[in-house]
């Protein structure tokens, strides 16, 4: 995973709440067996509308997505994260994220930033007033900065450290594998196993 320290880019204002993962990428696009190429499916149904915000030329190249509350609800498909990343997004800002989506983002290196809804709305207006507005998201300082306004955000210290170091979660757990073995030695014998197959 790439290290994430800070990022500056233009932003896309998505004035919708409850953007579920079926909207981010519909199921018919989930058939690929790789982690790339999912940008075609990003917001697939909404993109049919030429007026949909992502189709507007002034927002081309945006790397920060600013969305309404409850972003990423529904399905656990990490393809939603890959689709956003494949398209070019580095940061998603919302007042509330669904648990599984947020977890998936943090594993895959897509930064999710939680800001209060009133601040999200102020940012929407600022972007709409100036689509070329540069927004800086600094994970080291835990701030979102634009137009000389600096907003603090909070992220748990463990996730922040992991993202800033670009650390592989599995590698971290494998350092504790002796403890996993010790736990396994104590597991109750009645716990089920899938193998050998019983009929």
């Amino acid at each position: 995973m790439e290290k994430f320290i800070n990022h500056t880019g233009t932003a896309l204002p998505l004035r919708r709440s409850n953007v579920d993962t079926d909207q981010i990428i519909p199921a018919v696009y989930l058939k690929r067996v790789t982690k790339s190429g999912f940008e075609d499916g990003l917001f697939a149904a909404w993109r049919n509308d030429p007026e949909f915000v992502i189709n507007r030329p002034e927002y081309a190249g945006a790397t920060v997505l600013v969305a309404g509350a409850d972003f990423g609800t529904g399905s656990s498909r990490e393809h939603a994260v890959w689709a956003l990343q494949n398209y070019g997004f580095k940061v998603i800002i919302s007042s509330r994220f669904a648990d599984i989506f947020r977890g998936n983002s943090q594993k895959a290196g897509l930064l999710t930033v939680v800001l209060p809804q009133d601040e999200v709305e102020t940012i929407w207006s600022a972007i709409e007033a100036n689509p070329a507005l540069a927004i800086t998201v600094d994970l080291a300082l835990e701030t979102v900065t634009y137009n000389e306004i600096s907003l603090p955000f909070h992220i748990d210290s463990y996730t922040r450290w992991r993202l800033m170091e670009g650390l592989d979660d599995i590698g971290l757990t494998l350092k504790k594998i002796d403890q996993v073995s010790a736990y396994e030695a104590k597991r109750a014998s009645f716990k089920p196993k899938t193998l050998p197959i019983r009929h």
Binding site: I100, N104, K107, A108, D169, I170, T173, I177
Partner: peptide, 21 residues
């Protein structure tokens, strides 16, 4: 019992554990 993403699927396959809050 809960749903997980693909990164976590890989994590469970490799370690049979998950780091969870």
């Amino acid at each position: 019992a809960f749903g997980i993403g693909t990164s976590e699927v890989e994590h469970v396959l490799a370690t049979q554990t998950l780091p969870l809050v």
